[in-house]
Amino acid sequence: MRQILVRSEYCLGCKSCELACAVAHSTSKTLFEAINEPMPPQKRVFVESSGGLNFPLQCRQCLDSPCVHACMSGAMQFDRATGLIQVDEHKCVGCLMCVMVCPFGVIAELPDTHRVAKCDRCQDLDYDPACVAACPTKALEFVEVREFAHSGRQTFLDQMKGVN
């Protein structure tokens, strides 16, 4: 299965991925229209920086899926078709239990509807991640996991070592 992987050493923190992600979750799917939509689209990738490194972070699809375990409405579930963890926005009641346990802090609260949103791998774009396409330095890549050198994973995961 293809995964979004990050070469954090290439990330310049320009947040192009954040913009692209928000646009990918707008109604119009274009930047110039999206900014005027009544319900501003929510980005699901967050460029974090820590100890001099930038890291564009989105749902890591944790194997132990703490969010699914914490979700008390059944909204956060494995999607059988894609094998991805997805939130069903209609079931979500905004209890934020998932926010409380997501170790990467990548579940966003939608202020208007009081629900949550997270990376859905760009479901609307036929699972062609917008963040990856937007990154000008190719810090984000969408590849078969085997192709990606192990070194690419390091950084943030290193920092989070022992956590989880």
Binding site: S50, G51, L96, C98, M100, V101, P103, G105, Q159, N164
Partner: peptide, 24 residues
């Protein structure tokens, strides 16, 4: 309470935190 889960994970870790983790 945004990003609270990062703290939860650090509590779960149960070990002394590095400076970077402390910044988190």
């Amino acid at each position: 309470t945004s990003q609270c889960g990062v703290l939860t994970a650090l509590v779960k870790a149960g070990q002394p935190l590095t400076q970077t983790q402390k910044n988190l």
